[in-house]
Simulated scan of single mutants.
Amino acid sequence: MHPKHHFKYCPSCSKPTIFFQNYGAFECEECHFQLFINASAAVAAFILNEEGELLMAKRKHDPQAGTLDLPGGFVEVMEPAEDAVKREIMEELNLEVTHLEYFGSFPNEYLYKGMTYHTLDLAFVCKVKTFEGMQVNDDVADAIFIRPEKIDLNDIGLDSIRRMVLQYQKSIK
Rank of each mutant, 00 (worst) to 15 (best):
V136K: 04
I151F: 07
E96N: 12
V43P: 01
F26M: 08
I146M: 15
K86T: 04
S171M: 10
V43H: 01
M115P: 02
L122P: 00
F106A: 03
F33T: 00
V165M: 02
P80D: 12
V128F: 04
H32A: 06
Y168H: 09
L48A: 07
F19R: 13
S105T: 07
K4N: 07
A81C: 10
R59H: 11
E27W: 02
E92F: 01
C31S: 03
V85F: 02
A25D: 12
D155T: 13
M78R: 07
M134Q: 05
D152K: 10
L54K: 03
N49G: 08
E149L: 11
L55C: 13
I18V: 15
L55G: 01
Q64A: 03
H32M: 05
I47G: 01
Y23W: 13
K8D: 02
M1Q: 09
D155H: 14
Q64I: 00
P3K: 05
I161P: 00
S40M: 03
Y23G: 04
E53Q: 13
Q169T: 14
E30K: 12
V75C: 12
R163P: 00
Q169H: 14
D69Y: 02
R163D: 04
V136F: 02
Y110K: 04
I37V: 13
A57T: 13
F36T: 11
D159V: 09
F33G: 00
I151L: 07
A39K: 05
D121S: 10
L120G: 06
L55N: 04
S171G: 08
E29Y: 08
E96L: 14
K170A: 10
Y117L: 15
Y102E: 07
L153Q: 07
M164H: 03
F26C: 09
V43M: 06
Q21Y: 09
K4P: 00
G52W: 07
S160M: 08
A123Q: 04
F131A: 02
D142C: 08
G114D: 08
Y23H: 12
E101H: 12
S160W: 00
K8F: 11
I172V: 14
Q64W: 02
A65H: 03
K173D: 15
K127G: 09
G157Y: 05
K127N: 14
Q167H: 14
C126R: 01
K173Q: 15
F106W: 06
I18C: 01
E53I: 09
S12P: 01
I156G: 00
L48V: 11
K150S: 13
E50P: 01
I47D: 00
R162W: 06
N137E: 11
M78V: 05
L55Y: 08
A25H: 15
A81N: 05
A57D: 06
F26R: 03
G157R: 09
H6E: 07
K60C: 06
G66T: 03
Y110E: 11
G52T: 13
E132D: 15
E50K: 14
N94E: 11
K4W: 02
Y117A: 13
Q34P: 05
G157K: 11
F20R: 05
K150R: 13
M90H: 08
L158Q: 04
T67R: 07
K86Q: 12
A39G: 02
L166E: 15
K15A: 12
L122Q: 09
